[in-house]
Amino acid sequence: MDNDLTLAPLGRSGWTAGAAALLRAVARDPWFITLLILAVPALYWTASGTTPVAVERLWYWWPALMRGLGMNVQISLLAMTLGTMLGLVVGAISLSPLAPLRALTRAYVLAFRNAPILVLVYFTTYVFPFEVPVAGWVLPFPDWIKVVIGLALPASANVAEIFRGAVQSIPAAQWEAAHSLGFARTQIFRMVILPQCLRRMLAPWMNLYASITMSTALASLVGVHDLVDTATVASNTVARTDFTILIYFTLLALFFAYCYPISRLTRYLERRHARH
């Protein structure tokens, strides 16, 4: 593919040939081209001082938008961390030899995978109190943490399924071989199964992270000041049609800029795993 930056073999003018190849590859890269397309009018406007009003307002609101994006990222990272920890526990229980435990985890996974995420977010936001009395102190329970919990629950159900799927994809022959060498069940898990599972889980887990990040947009519906909420506020404040169009498509672009690299990385990891 043209995007590969390969060094040309060292010849007479070895490194200049390599530099030329590098420049050619960069010039053909779609990201670079997009940057150019954005940079050219930006430079023109700054130089001539004729920036359109909408763009000027966008520039004014940019720090607030970035803060909003930071809130989304913060929620997604925390929700994913909590969800992963909880999900691994549930996943481990789902592989238990005891049938009632397995049934319990199946119910857990079923409940959280069949519930709309929006409903779960409403649930945690409105049902949890907005203050928590702990040991004499009264801690505020901010909305965004409630959203974190609301997203961590379905994330944990998905992580549990990913974990279970990865473990069950290890061929039975490896269990048999390990058993025949005298290993106990937990030892087999630790030394044989888990190391292989982690590699198989990576791509679906990253997919899940991208999906959770996109779900953080729902936080705007429960009053959290995230990127979408900031954009709505800005659009209502400026109250210009062209600004509204610009800011909503900027929203799209910002989420895309965050999630698309994750998706590319995930596909790269999937291909690398497929070769094993």
Binding site: A210, M214, S215, T216, A217, L218, S220, L221, V228, T232, Y248, F249, L251, L252, F255, F256, C259, Y260, S263
Partner: peptide, 10 residues
């Protein structure tokens, strides 16, 4: 790679 909510708003 973009949230459905944002697509709906757009």
């Amino acid at each position: 790679n973009t949230p459905t909510l944002v697509q709906l708003y757009c």
